[in-house]
């Protein structure tokens, strides 16, 4: 997920401004009437300019788009399929166009707004601190658990000697999740104990934001 590129002018913008820009682009995409093609084109040019300034490689964008478009087109196509007629096609095209624009601007946002900065920004806008603490906790531990899943699947593959029956894979998949569940809950207990040992009382305290 990480794209190698140094900080650019887009990275140095204030976090709140980045969020606002993306919100504006998405809102504009929704507000422009579907018939107004030039406006959509200008919005797209703006988004691509943002990508260029942020130094996001085109190949990465295309790869993400290739994975995203089938999903969006499914939604878009279900309209003409189920409603029929010109109106259905018109609505469907509008959805496809605006959806891609919104997706591209979100890609820009996740590229220039690192997660800690997002948390700090949300904190400044008075998002409940309990939620933010949970989110930080979750973000931290999801990567640990991803690696745990990878290790468990690798170990499982090593022990099953290439057995790949259909039902077998379902069973093994469920067992991996079950085992992960048990391990992660034990880990949560341990972490909770460690937090208590360091004076955790249930209140979230943070150092001054440096976002």
């Amino acid at each position: 997920m990480t794209v190698e590129s140094g900080p650019t002018v887009c990275h140095r913008l204030p976090a709140g401004l980045k969020l606002l820009l993306v919100a504006l682009v998405i809102a504009a995409g929704l507000a422009i009437p579907a018939e107004n093609w030039p406006a959509h084109g200008m919005l797209a040019a703006l988004v691509f300019a943002g990508h260029t300034f942020a130094g996001i490689p085109l190949r990465y964008l295309l790869r993400r788009l290739a994975l995203f478009l089938p999903l969006l087109l499914t939604f878009a196509l279900s309209l003409p399929l189920s409603q029929g007629g010109d109106r259905g096609w018109e609505l469907g095209t509008a959805i496809a166009l605006r959806g891609s624009l919104a997706f591209l601007s979100m890609l820009w946002l996740i590229h220039v707004l690192p997660f800690p900065q997002l948390l700090a920004t949300l904190r400044r806008y008075h998002c409940p601190s309990v939620l933010l603490a949970m989110m930080a906790f979750m973000y931290r531990f999801s990567f640990l658990l991803f690696h745990e899943v990878e290790r468990m699947t690798a170990a499982r593959r090593a022990r099953s000697f290439g057995r790949t029956g259909f039902w077998f894979r379902w069973k093994v998949g469920a067992q991996v999740i079950g085992m992960l569940l048990i391990r992660s809950m034990r880990r949560a207990e341990r972490v909770h104990g460690a937090m208590l040992a360091r004076g955790w009382t249930g209140d979230v305290r943070v150092l001054e934001d440096k976002a």
């Binding site: 309990v130 603490a133 949970m134 989110m135 930080a136 906790f137 979750m138 931290r140 531990f141 999801s142 640990l144 658990l145 992660s184 809950m185 880990r187 949560a188 972490v191 909770h192 937090m195 249930g202 979230v204």
Partner: peptide
Amino acid sequence: VPMTGMAAA
């Protein structure tokens, strides 16, 4: 916090 965060992860 730890329990919910871990459940989410």
